[in-house]
Nucleic acid binder design. Structure first.
Lengths: 343, 343
DNA sequence: CTGAAAGCGCTTACAG
DNA sequence: CTGAAAGCGCTTACAG
């Protein structure tokens, strides 16, 4: 495999030709044979290829990169690769990149702007052709500077206002409209939302979407949003839900997968039954729903599309450095279970 | 960030020194200052560093790699990075690698030997200093050839017989002994196991561990192992569990996280209550347990140690090419919930 | 159709 | 303490 490292020089010696010719044959091998301008003598070409195989030749990537200034590697910076939502997206990106002969390097920020900054620097130094980033709160200015550096860049899941950069995001307002509408159709009016207390576009849009939906449906008086601190989810969700239930709330809409699971767990602990006493619409699918006593209604995000569109958009930016930035907005879909239904 | 790409030449020009001196100053910067053999003039050094900063210099990784023959990148090939067990390990490896200035590239095999082979080839061509692999069935010979190529290599989660290669694995026999013992202590004798139908060391050891534990506890007559096909889990688990319950089985031990969740779900669908009618010991922790009606007893694997030990062991192999291979065996710990208890 | 040569950016003996 | 030079392995105009 690695062994003594055969180089084109070895092959050239063995074949009695120049290294240039070897290089030429090797690179033509992977290109459209019709596009080659020069035609290498068939027999010579075959001989070179045969020797390369025999000597177990593997081109040196560093040399090629140094020469071409392209690494065929991209960086993908997520919130946390062990979070199922991001892990699933990571998998899609990995698969797609593999197909296009790209390698991807992942990094996790834990919603920490310093870490994000550091990761980007490491990856840029390492040499990457482009970046997909899930931005976190506080990283706006830094990401703007990355965008200005002309590094091909695509934001995912969240975007940043006032910065000219491409992004792939969810239609969060539509998600919340679907959630609220479904609950209203099932007879709820006291519908409250549990979201994060973070200054992120998706968080804010979901909150805004909830408000708009409520007002649109004539329930403006019942609007109530509970903003949970990211670092202390369980206990906050429990207390928020406890007092809301005491106030006679009829339904909860959750803003993320983690919040949904914490919420259902809290309702269990408070011995509030779903959907008999309180109805629920969650966000994202989860393995955990499979073991829940009731089938869960949730907003389903198009995970595969997130991965695919982000990657494809980044490829476009890499191939055309002067491409205009654009935003791809993906549509969520509500999946109805019993947790939101009339009893 | 990337911009016009400053090189040491630019800095040398600006500072009126040679590129060698610049290179020297730049690399000394990151080494133990006491170890330097030459001492660069303090003032010159400071001036060079200052210019580097002002010109926003970032060393070209490809050039350095080409020169040094080291990439500071490792490859990690898992079964599936979107599986929670592997995603958690991936996160640990990522964090640890980051601390040691290493970059990691992940790949998923989906238990497909061809894919594994391909991924390894891609990564090796790309240039990596070492590999951590979760081997899959059918990849034994190929992995043996990788080991022979002297590429630093560590197997994780499973190992391969007859090949001289390092590995980090779980003490699967101990896991199963704990599982069976706990159930026996709670009065069960008809304990059956649900595992995979795969020829992998961990699968086989868990099965063997179950058998030994049963025999050791005088329950050899009740030994029954159900081997599930990896590609058709849900339906097979359901039918296996259905007939076992009909036979009057008292408890199930599951061999992996996916099997545990499928099993609990199947019991739900069959309206068999846990632990009243049947007791259960699962494998690996899962978010899903949080929403299950009963707290689940499970075998907990030391995820962080898996990541850490694999990485550390690989580092040792990278630093010392002639190091003897070794196996690190990690201890599981049973976490007792209500699912295994007497009613 | 094929070869000689320059150069990508860096590191490392080797002189001075 | 500092500089000139070779070379890592490859690609790419440019000649022939």
């Amino acid at each position: 495999m690695t062994a003594k490292k055969t180089t084109i020089k070895d092959i050239a010696n063995e074949a009695g030709v120049s290294i240039a010719l070897v290089s030429f044959v090797m690179s033509n091998q992977t290109r459209d044979p019709d596009e080659r301008i020069y035609k290498v003598n068939e027999e010579t070409s075959r001989r070179i290829l045969e020797i390369a195989r025999r000597l177990n030749y593997h081109p040196n990537n560093a040399a090629r990169t140094l020469r071409q200034g392209k690494t065929n590697t991209i960086g993908v910076i997520l919130s946390d690769i062990s979070n199922k939502f991001f892990a699933d997206i990571a998998r899609c990106i990995e698969d797609r990149a593999y197909k296009y002969d790209y390698t991807v390097i992942f990094g996790s920020t834990d919603e920490n702007a310093d870490k994000l900054e550091n990761l980007v620097k490491v990856l840029v130094d390492k040499g990457i052709d482009g970046l997909i980033i899930v931005p976190c709160a506080g990283s706006e200015r830094f990401i703007a500077s990355v965008a200005e550096s002309r590094m091909p860049l695509v934001l995912m899941d969240r975007n940043i206002g006032g910065v000219d950069v491409s992004s792939v995001v969810l239609d969060n307002r539509s998600a919340m409209l679907q959630a609220v509408s479904t609950l209203v159709e099932n007879g709820c009016t006291h519908i409250e939302m549990v979201g994060y207390d973070m200054c992120l576009s998706n968080v804010l849009e979901r909150e805004e979407g909830y408000r708009q939906a409520m007002e649109h449906l004539g329930l403006g008086d019942h609007v109530a949003v509970h903003r949970i601190d990211f670092r202390n989810i369980e206990s906050q969700v429990r207390s928020v839900i406890g007092s809301a239930v005491a106030r006679g709330v009829e339904a909860f809409v959750f803003g993320t997968n983690t919040l949904t699971i914490s919420g259902l767990k809290a309702l269990d602990e408070l011995e509030v039954s779903v959907p008999e006493q309180v109805r629920v619409v969650g966000f994202d699918d989860s393995e955990a729903f499979e073991l829940y006593r009731t089938s869960v209604t949730y907003i389903s995000q198009p995970i595969e599309q997130f991965g695919q569109e982000s990657f494809d958009l980044l490829m476009k930016h890499i191939r055309n450095r002067d491409m205009q930035s654009m935003t791809v907005t993906l549509k969520p879909q509500i999946v109805e279970g019993k947790s939101s239904s009339k009893i």
